[in-house]
Design a protein around this nucleic acid. Structure first.
Lengths: 197, 197
DNA sequence: ACAAAGCCAGACAGACCTGTCTTCCCGTAC
DNA sequence: GTACGGGAAGACAGGTCTGTCTGGCTTTGT
């Protein structure tokens, strides 16, 4: 078996994904060349092309790994909350934790999507990520009994994206707190409309 | 005089900026090479380097021109509104008009900032743009008599950025309408807090 | 022990990039 | 008429990129 070498030594694939994550995320997928990734991973260039086929597919794998990791982080935070309102706002708590991690550099999917040329398959990974965020907010809003869960989810998604942008471009991790406060106001207004239309 | 050739023929500088805007905005600053810009502008490569010095400075000039054009568009829309509340929400009306323009492809400053390597002077243009948006929202919120104009401006900026992201990545120009509705809810909640804290 | 597969190291081709420099043309001032 | 300067066209250098291919080493299975 070569796929489950996680106890003793990281497998070639794992080393490649780790190096790609570190370099792609901090410097961008366009400016980082294949040579630097294989050198950092201590891997032959032929292994990379045997495993992934092209740089574009490596970028997709890198984005999917980021997606999975973000998802785990947010869902782990959400288990700490009980009421629907707390769980809905907890998404921004999880986001705030991501903002303060060392080396945080904004949303990887936004950056990669801006770097590739339009129509690239890389945009599919970004679409998958956005669909997950949208569905998460919609489900939480529905559980909370909001009148129009889709509309509130769209609004919260704007705040979520905006916080990611601000955290990166303004270098201000407190954007998550601002987004959380705005989300609370929007949620409270939405449930109030429901009780007294 | 060569700088005011706008009546008969566009000057060399104007032709370069027009070509750069068209190519940089639709395909990205990294993937578009100098050769394609000088060819589209019908200009000698030496003229570009005499006028701008480097590609990086051309990118900055392109972003500053985008900034000025966006600013004019928004401010023109704002003149149509009278009450502070209408003017504050009118920013999202202007944004919605930008979203429906042919060839819209998201916020140029976000895309360019994601493509250049961190620390590039290009980020300065993005900072100038973000400062203008922030100041605009803060002034409008203060004119409206909100209790904490800076906090509301931060929240509205999140919606503004999020709408730009959604319009580009979800290909959904109605993101501006969603942002406007959320902004109205946040504004009304803020003035209500002021009247009955 | 021996075969076979996996993998590292690196050369190589072909394309593309930025930035400089030369050459030539054309319009204009004097 | 003539001198001059701005600009078009493009060759060129030096570097970087992706992707392929060869050679040799190491590890593993039997």
């Amino acid at each position: 078996m070569s796929t489950k070498a996680s106890a003793s030594k990281p497998s070639v694939r794992e080393r490649l994904l780790a190096a790609a994550d570190e370099l792609f995320y901090s410097e961008g997928v366009q400016t980082v060349g294949i040579d630097r990734i294989v050198q950092k991973a201590g891997v032959a260039k032929a292994s990379l092309y045997n495993l992934f086929g092209s740089k574009e597919e490596l970028v997709q794998a890198y984005l999917d790994a980021r997606h999975a990791s973000t998802r785990e982080q947010i869902e782990r935070v959400l288990t700490r909350f009980r009421t629907p309102r707390e769980r809905l706002l907890g998404v921004f708590d999880g986001q705030g934790q991501l903002f303060t991690e060392p080396g945080f550099n904004g949303c990887a999917h936004m950056a990669a999507s801006a770097e590739v040329r339009p129509g690239s398959p890389v945009e599919g990974a970004a679409d998958r990520y956005r669909l997950w965020v949208r569905t998460l907010f919609t489900d939480l809003a529905r559980e909370a009994g909001v009148a129009d869960p889709e509309e509130l989810a769209r609004q919260l998604h704007l705040l979520y994206d905006g916080a990611g942008i601000s955290a990166r471009m303004d270098r201000d991790p407190s954007a998550a707190t601002t987004a959380r406060a705005a989300a609370a106001a929007l949620f409270d207004a939405a449930v109030k409309d429901r009780n007294a239309p």
